[in-house]
Design a protein around this nucleic acid. Sequence first.
DNA 1: CATCAGGGCCCTG
DNA 2: CAGGGCCCTGAT
Length: 324
Amino acid sequence: MTKTMELQNKATIELKPIPPYNFDANFHKPSHFPSSDNIWEKGKYWITMVWDSQELGLKFEDIGTIDIPRIRVNVYSRKTLSKELIDSLIPETRWRFNFDSDISEFFEKFKDDKVLGSIIKKWKGMKPIAANSLYETLVIYVVLQNATVRRSVQMLENLFEKFGKKVRFDNKVLSTFWEPSKMAKSTEKVLRDLKVGYRAKFLMKISEQFANEEIDEFVLRKMTKDEIKKEMLKLYGIGPASVEYLLFEDFYFCDKLEKVPPWEQKIMSRLIFKKKLVPVEKILEFFKKKYSGWNKLAFHYIWEDVFWKRKHERIEWLEKEIRL
DNA sequence: CATCAGGGCCCTG
DNA sequence: CAGGGCCCTGAT
Protein backbone atom coordinates (compact mmCIF):
# COMPACT_ATOMS: atom_id res chain seq x y z
CA MET A 1 0.00 0.00 0.00
CA THR A 2 1.58 3.27 -1.04
CA LYS A 3 0.69 6.61 0.46
CA THR A 4 -0.91 9.21 -1.72
CA MET A 5 1.64 11.62 -3.07
CA GLU A 6 0.68 15.28 -3.01
CA LEU A 7 1.42 17.23 -6.17
CA GLN A 8 1.31 20.74 -4.85
CA ASN A 9 3.31 22.59 -7.42
CA LYS A 10 1.50 24.05 -10.38
CA ALA A 11 2.59 25.46 -13.71
CA THR A 12 0.23 26.60 -16.43
CA ILE A 13 0.56 26.55 -20.19
CA GLU A 14 -1.87 27.30 -22.97
CA LEU A 15 -1.91 25.39 -26.21
CA LYS A 16 -3.66 25.73 -29.53
CA PRO A 17 -4.47 22.52 -31.38
CA ILE A 18 -4.92 22.88 -35.10
CA PRO A 19 -8.61 23.18 -35.90
CA PRO A 20 -11.03 21.58 -35.96
CA TYR A 21 -10.50 20.07 -32.53
CA ASN A 22 -13.35 18.72 -30.43
CA PHE A 23 -12.26 18.77 -26.80
CA ASP A 24 -14.82 16.43 -25.31
CA ALA A 25 -14.85 13.95 -28.19
CA ASN A 26 -11.08 13.73 -27.95
CA PHE A 27 -10.43 13.66 -24.24
CA HIS A 28 -13.22 11.20 -23.66
CA LYS A 29 -13.87 8.03 -25.65
CA PRO A 30 -17.06 6.46 -24.33
CA SER A 31 -16.24 3.10 -25.92
CA HIS A 32 -13.12 2.76 -23.77
CA PHE A 33 -13.15 1.14 -20.35
CA PRO A 34 -12.67 3.45 -17.37
CA SER A 35 -9.27 3.60 -15.70
CA SER A 36 -8.25 5.34 -12.48
CA ASP A 37 -5.41 7.25 -14.12
CA ASN A 38 -7.83 9.73 -15.67
CA ILE A 39 -11.17 11.47 -15.25
CA TRP A 40 -13.24 13.40 -17.73
CA GLU A 41 -15.99 15.93 -17.21
CA LYS A 42 -17.46 18.18 -19.85
CA GLY A 43 -14.73 20.64 -20.79
CA LYS A 44 -12.26 19.22 -18.29
CA TYR A 45 -9.87 16.31 -18.09
CA TRP A 46 -7.38 15.08 -15.53
CA ILE A 47 -4.70 12.47 -16.20
CA THR A 48 -1.45 11.39 -14.59
CA MET A 49 1.83 11.06 -16.42
CA VAL A 50 5.23 9.63 -15.68
CA TRP A 51 7.71 11.93 -17.32
CA ASP A 52 11.42 12.30 -16.69
CA SER A 53 11.05 9.68 -13.94
CA GLN A 54 8.58 11.69 -11.92
CA GLU A 55 4.86 11.56 -11.37
CA LEU A 56 2.92 14.47 -12.81
CA GLY A 57 -0.72 15.42 -12.82
CA LEU A 58 -2.21 17.19 -15.81
CA LYS A 59 -5.45 19.09 -15.86
CA PHE A 60 -6.82 20.16 -19.23
CA GLU A 61 -9.51 22.77 -19.68
CA ASP A 62 -11.35 23.68 -22.82
CA ILE A 63 -11.11 27.45 -23.24
CA GLY A 64 -11.78 27.65 -26.95
CA THR A 65 -14.16 26.34 -29.59
CA ILE A 66 -14.01 23.58 -32.16
CA ASP A 67 -12.89 25.96 -34.89
CA ILE A 68 -10.69 28.13 -32.68
CA PRO A 69 -9.47 25.60 -30.15
CA ARG A 70 -7.53 26.63 -27.07
CA ILE A 71 -6.62 24.45 -24.15
CA ARG A 72 -5.25 25.39 -20.77
CA VAL A 73 -3.01 22.80 -19.17
CA ASN A 74 -2.11 22.87 -15.50
CA VAL A 75 0.88 20.71 -14.73
CA TYR A 76 1.06 19.54 -11.13
CA SER A 77 4.25 18.16 -9.61
CA ARG A 78 5.92 17.46 -6.30
CA LYS A 79 8.82 19.81 -6.87
CA THR A 80 9.08 22.96 -8.93
CA LEU A 81 9.53 22.09 -12.57
CA SER A 82 12.39 23.49 -14.60
CA LYS A 83 11.67 25.45 -17.72
CA GLU A 84 13.34 22.71 -19.75
CA LEU A 85 10.99 20.13 -18.37
CA ILE A 86 7.92 22.19 -19.11
CA ASP A 87 9.24 22.85 -22.60
CA SER A 88 9.70 19.14 -23.16
CA LEU A 89 6.16 18.54 -22.07
CA ILE A 90 4.64 20.69 -24.78
CA PRO A 91 5.45 18.57 -27.85
CA GLU A 92 4.65 15.44 -25.88
CA THR A 93 1.24 16.75 -24.91
CA ARG A 94 0.56 17.87 -28.46
CA TRP A 95 1.39 14.36 -29.64
CA ARG A 96 -0.49 12.39 -27.00
CA PHE A 97 -3.66 14.35 -27.58
CA ASN A 98 -3.18 14.64 -31.32
CA PHE A 99 -3.19 18.42 -31.60
CA ASP A 100 -1.34 18.48 -34.90
CA SER A 101 -2.64 15.98 -37.41
CA ASP A 102 -4.78 17.60 -40.06
CA ILE A 103 -8.05 15.83 -40.77
CA SER A 104 -9.96 18.75 -42.30
CA GLU A 105 -10.18 16.99 -45.66
CA PHE A 106 -12.31 14.31 -44.02
CA PHE A 107 -15.03 16.83 -43.22
CA GLU A 108 -14.92 18.43 -46.63
CA LYS A 109 -15.28 15.08 -48.31
CA PHE A 110 -17.98 13.50 -46.21
CA LYS A 111 -20.06 16.25 -44.67
CA ASP A 112 -22.96 15.37 -46.96
CA ASP A 113 -22.51 11.62 -46.81
CA LYS A 114 -25.68 9.67 -46.04
CA VAL A 115 -24.20 7.78 -43.10
CA LEU A 116 -21.53 10.18 -41.88
CA GLY A 117 -23.14 13.55 -42.53
CA SER A 118 -25.18 13.82 -39.36
CA ILE A 119 -22.47 12.19 -37.26
CA ILE A 120 -19.86 14.63 -38.52
CA LYS A 121 -22.13 17.51 -37.61
CA LYS A 122 -22.19 16.28 -34.02
CA TRP A 123 -18.56 15.30 -33.67
CA LYS A 124 -16.59 17.50 -35.99
CA GLY A 125 -12.99 17.66 -34.77
CA MET A 126 -12.98 14.21 -33.19
CA LYS A 127 -9.66 12.42 -33.64
CA PRO A 128 -7.85 9.34 -32.43
CA ILE A 129 -6.09 10.04 -29.14
CA ALA A 130 -3.29 8.08 -27.49
CA ALA A 131 -3.46 9.93 -24.14
CA ASN A 132 -0.85 7.52 -22.74
CA SER A 133 2.71 6.60 -23.61
CA LEU A 134 3.22 3.70 -25.98
CA TYR A 135 4.28 1.39 -23.17
CA GLU A 136 1.18 2.24 -21.18
CA THR A 137 -1.04 1.72 -24.17
CA LEU A 138 0.48 -1.71 -24.74
CA VAL A 139 -0.28 -2.65 -21.15
CA ILE A 140 -3.88 -1.61 -21.74
CA TYR A 141 -4.09 -3.66 -24.93
CA VAL A 142 -2.71 -6.72 -23.18
CA VAL A 143 -5.32 -6.60 -20.43
CA LEU A 144 -7.95 -6.07 -23.09
CA GLN A 145 -7.22 -9.35 -24.85
CA ASN A 146 -9.69 -12.16 -24.40
CA ALA A 147 -11.38 -10.56 -21.45
CA THR A 148 -14.64 -8.95 -20.46
CA VAL A 149 -14.70 -5.26 -19.60
CA ARG A 150 -14.93 -5.92 -15.90
CA ARG A 151 -11.97 -8.23 -15.98
CA SER A 152 -9.85 -5.79 -17.97
CA VAL A 153 -10.65 -3.07 -15.46
CA GLN A 154 -9.77 -5.34 -12.56
CA MET A 155 -6.46 -6.40 -14.10
CA LEU A 156 -5.38 -2.83 -14.79
CA GLU A 157 -6.38 -1.63 -11.33
CA ASN A 158 -4.48 -4.51 -9.73
CA LEU A 159 -1.43 -3.49 -11.72
CA PHE A 160 -1.80 0.16 -10.64
CA GLU A 161 -2.06 -0.97 -7.04
CA LYS A 162 1.09 -3.04 -7.23
CA PHE A 163 3.35 -1.05 -9.54
CA GLY A 164 1.92 2.45 -9.76
CA LYS A 165 1.37 5.23 -7.26
CA LYS A 166 -1.50 7.38 -6.14
CA VAL A 167 -1.22 11.11 -6.58
CA ARG A 168 -3.45 13.96 -5.46
CA PHE A 169 -3.77 17.15 -7.48
CA ASP A 170 -6.60 19.63 -8.00
CA ASN A 171 -8.64 17.65 -5.47
CA LYS A 172 -8.49 14.46 -7.50
CA VAL A 173 -6.75 11.26 -6.48
CA LEU A 174 -5.57 9.28 -9.48
CA SER A 175 -3.33 6.30 -10.18
CA THR A 176 -0.11 6.54 -12.11
CA PHE A 177 1.51 4.02 -14.38
CA TRP A 178 5.02 2.84 -13.64
CA GLU A 179 8.29 2.72 -15.48
CA PRO A 180 8.86 -0.46 -17.51
CA SER A 181 11.99 -1.31 -15.51
CA LYS A 182 9.95 -1.60 -12.34
CA MET A 183 7.78 -4.32 -13.80
CA ALA A 184 10.74 -5.91 -15.55
CA LYS A 185 12.38 -6.41 -12.16
CA SER A 186 9.31 -8.23 -10.91
CA THR A 187 8.41 -11.86 -11.67
CA GLU A 188 5.77 -13.70 -13.59
CA LYS A 189 4.50 -15.19 -10.36
CA VAL A 190 3.90 -11.75 -8.83
CA LEU A 191 1.96 -10.74 -11.91
CA ARG A 192 -0.10 -13.91 -11.93
CA ASP A 193 -1.14 -13.17 -8.39
CA LEU A 194 -2.66 -9.98 -9.77
CA LYS A 195 -5.01 -12.14 -11.83
CA VAL A 196 -3.66 -11.24 -15.22
CA GLY A 197 -3.41 -14.93 -16.05
CA TYR A 198 -1.34 -15.99 -19.04
CA ARG A 199 -0.82 -12.31 -19.86
CA ALA A 200 1.82 -12.25 -17.08
CA LYS A 201 4.41 -13.49 -19.54
CA PHE A 202 3.43 -10.86 -22.12
CA LEU A 203 3.68 -8.04 -19.58
CA MET A 204 7.06 -9.23 -18.33
CA LYS A 205 8.53 -9.50 -21.79
CA ILE A 206 7.14 -6.19 -23.03
CA SER A 207 8.42 -4.43 -19.91
CA GLU A 208 11.85 -5.97 -20.46
CA GLN A 209 11.89 -4.89 -24.08
CA PHE A 210 11.12 -1.30 -23.08
CA ALA A 211 13.48 -1.32 -20.09
CA ASN A 212 16.27 -2.53 -22.40
CA GLU A 213 15.43 0.27 -24.78
CA GLU A 214 14.74 -2.09 -27.62
CA ILE A 215 11.76 0.08 -28.47
CA ASP A 216 11.94 3.84 -28.90
CA GLU A 217 8.54 5.42 -29.14
CA PHE A 218 9.97 8.67 -30.46
CA VAL A 219 11.71 6.94 -33.34
CA LEU A 220 8.57 4.94 -34.12
CA ARG A 221 6.52 8.12 -34.42
CA LYS A 222 8.59 9.06 -37.44
CA MET A 223 8.27 5.71 -39.20
CA THR A 224 5.87 4.61 -41.90
CA LYS A 225 2.86 2.53 -41.07
CA ASP A 226 4.35 -0.71 -42.34
CA GLU A 227 7.57 -0.16 -40.43
CA ILE A 228 5.66 0.49 -37.21
CA LYS A 229 3.55 -2.58 -37.81
CA LYS A 230 6.64 -4.71 -38.22
CA GLU A 231 8.24 -3.32 -35.08
CA MET A 232 5.12 -3.77 -32.98
CA LEU A 233 4.63 -7.37 -34.06
CA LYS A 234 8.07 -8.11 -32.63
CA LEU A 235 6.65 -7.48 -29.19
CA TYR A 236 5.74 -10.66 -27.41
CA GLY A 237 2.00 -10.74 -26.87
CA ILE A 238 1.19 -8.12 -29.48
CA GLY A 239 -0.48 -9.59 -32.56
CA PRO A 240 -2.56 -8.38 -35.48
CA ALA A 241 -5.59 -7.34 -33.44
CA SER A 242 -3.61 -5.14 -31.06
CA VAL A 243 -1.61 -3.69 -33.94
CA GLU A 244 -4.80 -2.69 -35.73
CA TYR A 245 -5.80 -0.60 -32.71
CA LEU A 246 -2.29 0.75 -32.20
CA LEU A 247 -1.83 2.10 -35.69
CA PHE A 248 -4.94 4.20 -35.39
CA GLU A 249 -5.25 5.12 -31.74
CA ASP A 250 -1.58 5.55 -31.00
CA PHE A 251 0.01 6.50 -34.30
CA TYR A 252 -2.97 8.22 -35.85
CA PHE A 253 -3.12 6.50 -39.24
CA CYS A 254 -6.68 7.19 -40.36
CA ASP A 255 -6.73 5.49 -43.72
CA LYS A 256 -6.76 1.74 -43.68
CA LEU A 257 -9.23 -0.51 -41.93
CA GLU A 258 -7.93 -4.06 -42.09
CA LYS A 259 -9.40 -6.03 -39.20
CA VAL A 260 -12.75 -6.02 -37.48
CA PRO A 261 -12.85 -8.05 -34.25
CA PRO A 262 -16.00 -10.10 -33.49
CA TRP A 263 -17.81 -7.68 -31.19
CA GLU A 264 -17.15 -4.73 -33.50
CA GLN A 265 -18.40 -6.84 -36.37
CA LYS A 266 -21.69 -7.45 -34.57
CA ILE A 267 -22.17 -3.82 -33.65
CA MET A 268 -21.25 -2.50 -37.10
CA SER A 269 -23.60 -5.02 -38.72
CA ARG A 270 -26.49 -3.46 -36.82
CA LEU A 271 -25.40 0.13 -37.31
CA ILE A 272 -24.69 0.04 -41.01
CA PHE A 273 -26.62 -2.87 -42.45
CA LYS A 274 -29.39 -3.13 -39.84
CA LYS A 275 -28.65 -6.85 -39.68
CA LYS A 276 -27.54 -9.19 -36.92
CA LEU A 277 -24.33 -10.37 -38.51
CA VAL A 278 -22.67 -9.31 -41.76
CA PRO A 279 -19.40 -10.96 -42.86
CA VAL A 280 -16.27 -8.98 -42.03
CA GLU A 281 -15.37 -8.80 -45.72
CA LYS A 282 -18.62 -6.98 -46.44
CA ILE A 283 -17.95 -4.44 -43.74
CA LEU A 284 -14.40 -3.87 -44.96
CA GLU A 285 -15.66 -3.45 -48.50
CA PHE A 286 -18.26 -0.90 -47.40
CA PHE A 287 -15.68 1.31 -45.77
CA LYS A 288 -13.16 0.86 -48.53
CA LYS A 289 -15.64 1.88 -51.22
CA LYS A 290 -17.25 4.80 -49.46
CA TYR A 291 -14.50 6.31 -47.38
CA SER A 292 -11.37 5.63 -49.32
CA GLY A 293 -8.39 7.25 -47.62
CA TRP A 294 -10.32 7.72 -44.39
CA ASN A 295 -11.66 4.21 -43.69
CA LYS A 296 -10.54 3.97 -40.15
CA LEU A 297 -11.56 7.46 -39.11
CA ALA A 298 -15.00 6.94 -40.63
CA PHE A 299 -15.30 3.76 -38.60
CA HIS A 300 -14.29 5.68 -35.48
CA TYR A 301 -16.98 8.33 -36.00
CA ILE A 302 -19.75 5.78 -36.40
CA TRP A 303 -18.41 3.75 -33.50
CA GLU A 304 -17.98 6.47 -30.92
CA ASP A 305 -21.26 8.12 -31.90
CA VAL A 306 -23.28 5.11 -30.78
CA PHE A 307 -21.33 4.91 -27.52
CA TRP A 308 -22.02 8.59 -26.84
CA LYS A 309 -25.71 7.84 -27.40
CA ARG A 310 -25.49 4.99 -24.97
CA LYS A 311 -24.59 7.46 -22.22
CA HIS A 312 -28.10 8.88 -22.07
CA GLU A 313 -30.25 6.35 -23.84
CA ARG A 314 -30.58 2.63 -23.39
CA ILE A 315 -29.88 0.68 -26.57
CA GLU A 316 -31.03 -2.83 -25.86
CA TRP A 317 -29.21 -4.70 -28.63
CA LEU A 318 -25.98 -2.85 -27.89
CA GLU A 319 -26.03 -3.78 -24.21
CA LYS A 320 -26.08 -7.41 -25.26
CA GLU A 321 -22.99 -7.06 -27.43
CA ILE A 322 -20.89 -5.34 -24.79
CA ARG A 323 -19.36 -7.95 -22.60
CA LEU A 324 -19.44 -6.31 -19.23
C1' DC B 1 -23.32 -29.35 -11.91
C1' DA B 2 -20.30 -29.38 -16.44
C1' DT B 3 -18.83 -27.51 -20.67
C1' DC B 4 -17.48 -24.03 -23.82
C1' DA B 5 -16.38 -19.84 -26.38
C1' DG B 6 -14.31 -15.50 -26.11
C1' DG B 7 -12.86 -7.59 -27.16
C1' DG B 8 -5.95 -12.95 -28.93
C1' DC B 9 -1.67 -14.69 -29.18
C1' DC B 10 1.96 -18.15 -29.22
C1' DC B 11 3.69 -22.38 -30.52
C1' DT B 12 3.62 -26.76 -32.77
C1' DG B 13 3.08 -29.91 -36.55
C1' DC C 1 -1.94 -22.48 -42.37
C1' DA C 2 -4.78 -25.10 -38.87
C1' DG C 3 -5.55 -26.03 -34.29
C1' DG C 4 -4.63 -26.62 -29.29
C1' DG C 5 -3.61 -24.29 -24.89
C1' DC C 6 -3.97 -20.55 -21.86
C1' DC C 7 -6.40 -17.20 -17.21
C1' DC C 8 -10.78 -16.27 -16.28
C1' DT C 9 -15.89 -15.35 -16.68
C1' DG C 10 -20.44 -15.63 -18.25
C1' DA C 11 -23.69 -18.15 -21.09
C1' DT C 12 -26.04 -22.48 -21.84
